[in-house]
Design a binder for these strands. Sequence first.
DNA 1: TAGTTCATCCTTTTT
DNA 2: GGATGAACTA
Length: 815
Amino acid sequence: MSGYETPLFDLPKPPAPARQKAGSVLPGLGRPARREAGEGDGQGERGDQPSPTAPPSRSGSGHTSHAPHPPRDLEAMLDGLNPAQREAVVHSGTPLLIVAGAGSGKTRVLTNRIAYLLGERDVHPGEILAITFTNKAAAEMRERVEALIGPRARLMWVSTFHSACVRILRREHEHLGLPSSFTIYDADDSRRLMAQVARDLDLDVKRHPPRGLLAAVSSLKNELVDHESARDAAQSDREALIAEVYGVYQNRLIAARALDFDDLIMTTVNLFQAFPAVAESYHRRFRHVLVDEYQDTNHAQYVLVRELVGPADGEVPPAELCVVGDADQSIYAFRGATIRNILEFEADYPNAKTILLEQNYRSTQTILTAANAVIEKNRGRKPKNLWTDSGAGEQIIGYVADSEHDEAAFVANEVDRLTDEGLAKPGDVAVFYRTNAQSRAFEECFIRVGLPYRVVGGVRFYERKEVKDVLAYLRSLANPDDSVSVKRIINVPKRGIGDRAEAMLDALADRERISFGAAVDRADEAYGLAARSLNAVKGFAALMAGLREKVADGAGPAEVLEAILERTGYLAELQESTDPQDESRAENLQELVAVAHEYESTEGSEGIDGFLERVALVADADQIPGEHEDGLITLMTLHTAKGLEFPVVFLTGLEEGVFPHTRALGNVQELEEERRLAYVGITRARQRLYFSRAVLRSAWGAPAYNPESRFVAEVPKELIEWEREAPAPSSTAFGTQTPQLTASANKQRKTGFKSLGSSGREPISVAPGDRVIHDTYGLGTVVSVEGRTGEHATVDFGSEGVRKLVLAFAPLQKL
DNA sequence: TAGTTCATCCTTTTT
DNA sequence: GGATGAACTA
C-alpha cells in the first residue's frame, strides 16, 4: 500500500472553536460515545506529535519550517512548458481554472505549480492542500514535487477528499466532544445496512431493492439535504418514502457509530457550517487549495472546497484556489459528480482566470481527430480542439470478431505481431473494456497462448469475502456497536446461530435500546431463544470478550488478526477444506496479516483504528498500475484507465448494449457520459489504437447479438482500417445488423442462436459418459447433461475440477 | 438449524 | 454464469 499521509499537524493548533450545540447538525456524529474511555480510545490522539512520516529510506528531516531552500531552479519548473502551461504555473492572485484537455500535461503543470509556490513564492509547505482523485495520484504527486523541491515537500498535505475529511473529523472530534472512533462503511456494508432498514420498514424488496434505496439516499446526501427537510419537501409518495428511509438509515448509522462514504464529506461540511471557527482555522491554515479532476467533484465536495477557501470578503483573505479538469472526461456522474462545477466555475468565483490547455503531447493526430469527432457529438459542451504537432501516425485498426473468444484471440495475435516486429512490448499494451466481467475472455485466451498480463481492478483484495469477514471481526472489536459487522460474523464460521436467534437478539436490542453487539452480551434476557442457540450466542460472546481482552492489553492489529484466525477456527476450516479455492482464501488471510504487520512497522501507525481506517480508504488497486517495464499486458475497465496512457490501446466490446451499456441507451445524459468514456479510452493511446467488437457475445449465459457501437460510426471512416469486417448478413432469421435487440428479445430468440456456435464450431451433443477435450481444462468426462434441449453439460475434468458448460459456446470437442 | 435445490434477477462504472 | 433468496428436506 503506497497511501502515505503527510501529517497536517505540525502547524500550530487552531484555536478551539466556541462550543455550540452539536445536536442534529452532525448526522452520524450527533450522539456522544456511550462507552467511555477504554475501548478504542487507548491509542489516544497522536495528531499533535509531529510524527516522522518520511519513508525510512529517506534521510533529512525537513521538518523545521525554515529549512534552507534547496537550490532554486526556476528553469526546471518552467523548462519545456508552452506559454499556456507556464502561465498556469505562475498565475497568482485570483482563483484559477485550468481546463486541461487529455494529454495536455495537466499533471506536470500541477506539480510544477506546487513546486513553484514552494520554491519561488516562499509558500510554506504546510499551507498547501492538494486534493487528488485517487490515493495513487496523491502519492505520485508527492513524489514528483519532492523530486523538484526536496524533502520539505513532505510537509504539504496531498490526499483525496475522503482521506482529508477523515483526518479533519478525527482531529476535530476532541474540540466538539464527538466520538473519535467511528467505523467507515463501504458500499457493501451500506447495502447490508439498507437491507436491514428495508426490513425495519417492511418494504417490498422487489419493488425497492436496497441498492436502489441506497442510490436515492446517496444522491440526497450529496445534495446535503437532511432527511427532515427532504420529508417536508417530498412531492410524491416515492420521495416521501426515500426521506423516511433516509432517516431510519441515518439513525442506524449513528447507532453503529459508523459513517458511510458519502457521510465523510457531508459531515465535514456540516461541521464547518455549524462551527465557523473550525472552518476558519482551516482556511487560515491552507493558503493554497488545489483540486485535480475537478470535473468529477460532486456537490458536497464543491461546498467543502468553498468552505476551505473561505469567503471573498472575510476577515482572512480567501485561499488561492486552483482547480484542474476537463469536462469531457467527466465519467462519474453516476456517483454524483456534476460537470456543473467546472462549467460554472467562473460564475462561482467571479474574478476567476481560465487557462485552456489544448495542445496534446501524448497521441498522434489520427487518434486525436478520432477523439475530437466522437466527443463533438455531445451537446452543450464548450468546444475544445485537441491538436498535436507530432504527425498523423498509424491508422486505427478495426476488427470484427465472431465471438468474444475470437476477439481475445485477435488481441493476442496482434500483440504477438507487434512484439515480433519490434513495434511494441506486451508491457506497452492495454486492453480496455466496459465492464469487469469482460476480462474473463481475455484472461482465458492469454493464459492459453502464454501472454503475460495483469488485471487492474476487478475483485479487489479488500472486497474478498474472507478478508471482509476477518476484518468484520476486527471492526466488531474496535466498535461493538457496529451492528453490520457483528451480524456479518456472528455465524461465521457456522456456530449454530441462525436467522431466528438473530431476530430474537434484534428484538432484545430494540426493546432495551441497545446495539446489536450489546444484545449479544446480554443474550440471557432475550425471549424466545432456544437453549441451544443461547449457548451458541454465549460462546460467541465469550470468544469476543477474550479477543477484546487482547486488544485491551495493547495488542496491535496483526496480533489480534492472528488471534481471530486461530480462535474462531476460521483458518482451520479453510485449511481442512478440499475446495482448492479455500487454499487461496487462506493465503489471502495470511496476506492480510502481513499487511497488518507492515502497517505496524510504519511510523505513526495508530493501532487498530488506524489500520481499519487505512484499509477502508486505500483501494489496493491503487498500487498496481505503475510503470510498464515489467512486460505485462494491462487489462482494465475504461473507468480505471482514466489518467493513464499506453503506447498501444485496444478498445474492445464496441457494441451497442455493451459500450454504450444497455442501461444508458434510453437516456441522453447517460449516453453522453458513455461517450465521454469513449473519449477517455481513445485518448489513452499514444501511438496505436485498435477498435474491436464481437458479433456474438454470450452475456450471462445467453448469447446476444449486438450491432456495432455508435461510437465507431462517429469516427471518420478514413481513420480506420478494417482488418476484418462484419460478415455478410447470414441467412438466419435475424440479420446481423438488427438495431437495438433488447435483452428480452434476445432471450426469446435464445434457442435460435444455438446453431451459430462459437468460432464457427458446430455445437456438439454429448451424453453422460462421453469423453471430451476442452481447450482450457483438457480431458474430461461428461457427468450429466442439463436443459430441455441439452444446452448445458456438467463435465469432470479431474484435477481441473467439475465444470458446468454451455455446449454451444464451450471450446469443447468430443473424442 | 443447515444444507440442498430451484428461481429469479441481474449488472455498469468506484472514492 | 453468478449471486441471492425462498422453499424444502434431513
